[in-house]
Simulated scan of single mutants.
Amino acid sequence: MKGLYYNGTQAVYREDLPIPVPGEKESLIKIRYSAVCNTDKEVQKGYRPSFRGIMGHEFVGKVISSPDPALIGRRVVGELNASCGTCIYCRTGRPTHCSNRKVLGMDSKDGCFAEYMTIDTSLLHIVPDALPDTQAIFTEPLAAALEILTQVHISPDKNAAVLGDGRLALLTAQVLALTGVDLTVIGRHPEKLELFRPFAKTTTCGVKEGYEYVAECTGSESGLPQAMELVRKKGTILLKSTYSGTVSLDMSMVAVNELTIVGSRCGPFEPALRLLTDNKIHLPEIELYELRDYEKAFASTAFKAGFSFPS
């Protein structure tokens, strides 16, 4: 089997990987498309130093075998985190924070940068017939953007800023725009900011203490300190970035200014599928490569890059 394997130092393209054998509760998926996330790039920089295995967690695939016969032959997308069901977080309704969780392409579980993958059947979601693969591939990152709305009530009579002008920022901004909030997107690249103009104000320089909510979507260590400058006292920072590295902050200012910082990660798939199917979210096309050309995919400046696999 062809796959992209992380050996602890770098990603390596291989053609000698065994087709995985599903466990008792798992399904075998033939991958149709998989997409590169910024987190995958951070894995290469040491974000998950203990991981060894096939990378990738954003995919659309076809179910080859499953303990649920109704899924066989269906197109599916899938969640990242396989939980144990018994730890304190699973028992208290927080399975994505399971103490023993396995995370696709990042922690104790091979991912989707390969021809086949196994996944816990409970994590699968059927792709509606009307939704093409090249749009369904955005389900996971859109779900992550939607997680914000499960965590924080966004008052539509206040204002918000999205910090960043990349993929996650575009998804997060469109989700926030659905609430009717007065939205500004702050980025570094005027050409990228053009994508945001249909639903948000755009600028390359935000207003200090100008926003009640600031969604930090830069994917960079510099994002959180900048967000703290932009948010108003008693405001809320929504932290979406994950990266390899640490940030030095004056945490006393969080206390003095009574700021709320909300970490936000994985989110609900079914609402994401509905929004995509109903054309409520508008995204550029994914730029596709063969798996052997992974270096080009990882270096691509396109909105989204990924891999296509023969039928």
Rank of each mutant, 00 (worst) to 15 (best):
L224F: 14
K280R: 15
I261A: 01
C205G: 11
A227Q: 06
S220C: 09
A299M: 08
A272R: 05
E287Y: 03
M251I: 08
Q226V: 00
C266I: 06
M228Y: 10
C266S: 08
K304E: 07
D250G: 01
P225A: 01
L239K: 15
T236K: 04
Y243G: 09
L259N: 05
L238H: 11
T218Y: 09
M253L: 12
S264H: 03
P268F: 04
M251A: 12
K296Y: 14
R292M: 04
T204F: 01
G245W: 07
G267Y: 07
T203P: 06
G219W: 03
D250Y: 00
S222C: 04
L239Q: 15
M251K: 11
M251C: 14
S300T: 03
G223P: 11
S308M: 13
G306T: 02
K234Y: 06
Y213R: 09
L288M: 13
A302Y: 12
C205D: 13
Q226M: 10
S220W: 08
E216A: 03
G210Y: 02
L273I: 04
S244P: 02
K233W: 07
M251Q: 13
Y294N: 08
V207H: 11
I261K: 03
I261E: 02
L224G: 13
L238M: 09
S248D: 09
K296Q: 14
E290W: 01
M251E: 12
K304R: 15
V214A: 13
C217Q: 12
T277N: 13
K240D: 07
A299G: 15
V262N: 07
C266H: 07
S248M: 05
V231E: 04
L224V: 15
N257P: 00
A305F: 05
E295C: 02
V207C: 02
L275C: 11
I237F: 12
S220D: 14
V256Q: 15
T260M: 04
N279H: 14
R265P: 00
E258D: 08
S222T: 15
A272N: 06
N279C: 02
L249R: 09
F269Y: 15
E221R: 12
D278T: 10
L238Y: 09
E229M: 06
F307D: 05
A305N: 07
F309K: 04
S252T: 11
L288G: 11
L273Y: 12
E212D: 15
A305K: 07
N257M: 08
D293I: 00
G235K: 11
V256Y: 15
L238C: 08
